[in-house]
């Protein structure tokens, strides 16, 4: 890791000069104070400068990539990683063959991998707010699948008039269902139950004159 040591009359001054030499901002570094300044006798004799060591932190995405690559190697898999941007998030897409075991049932293993990756890379610097992990575009396929489940279930609710409760899903998947049906004015959605068994319920939107439905969506 890149680092410099600098002296200055105050800690602040030493840090400033180190930052300008490295050409980075304060959020991207670790600062160690090696020596506190002292003013010496009457501010003249034996005064000592402050000394600091400033180290550039690794980019979040870099840390995440190193971790995922190391992990898949240790699992005996061969794969490469493609990084994409999506808003303030970065997506690490793991590309390779026979990676099903990284996805797991309904993406469970992938979510665990993503959690660990974020624990590891949270120590790093950089703009990326979140690092998402994907395997060969699985995430997008699963999103499409959830949207299809939402629409077909909504059709069944419209036909029968009865509410339908979907299987337990995590917050992100439930959100996809809610969003998919947000513009459907014949049904409403809400969530019931406690994590990790919280489920989305799709029901018929009541007409005017009946009891008011809760409109607010809770993920």
């Amino acid at each position: 890791m890149k680092s410099v040591e600098k002296s200055g009359r105050t800690v602040e001054e030493a840090v400033e000069s180190a930052l300008s030499e490295l050409g980075v901002s304060r959020e991207d570094v670790l600062i160690e104070v090696l020596e506190e300044p002292s003013r010496g006798f009457l501010g003249i004799l034996g005064g000592r400068d402050a000394k600091v060591r400033v180290t550039v932190k690794k980019e979040k995405v870099e840390l995440a990539k190193e971790f995922v690559l190391g992990l898949i190697k240790k699992m005996g898999l061969e794969a490469s990683i493609e990084v994409r941007s999506q808003g303030d998030a970065r997506i690490l897409d793991i590309i390779g063959r026979d990676l099903g075991l990284l996805i797991g049932r309904r993406g469970e293993t992938l979510k665990h991998l993503e959690l660990l990756t974020n624990v590891v890379c949270s120590k790093g610097a950089g703009e990326a707010k979140r690092v998402l992990v994907d395997v060969s575009g699985y995430r997008r396929r699963r999103e499409k699948e959830l949207e299809e489940i939402a629409r077909s279930t909504a059709r069944r609710v419209e036909r029968s008039g009865k509410s339908i409760m979907l299987e337990p899903m995590d917050a992100r998947d439930r959100r996809i269902i809610h969003m998919a049906l947000q513009k459907n004015n014949r049904v409403v959605t809400h969530s019931e139950g406690e994590e990790p068994f919280r489920r989305v319920v799709i029901s018929l939107r009541r007409g005017q004159g009946s009891e008011p439905r809760k409109e607010k969506t809770e993920y």
């Binding site: 992990l71 240790k74 699992m75 005996g76 075991l101 990284l102 797991g104 469970e108 293993t109 665990h112 991998l113 959690l115 660990l116 624990v119």
Partner: peptide
């Protein structure tokens, strides 16, 4: 975190 560690180790073991 420990839950996630177990899940990944289980997946690798299953292989």
């Amino acid at each position: 975190v420990i839950h996630a560690i177990r899940a990944l180790v289980q997946a690798a073991a299953a292989k």
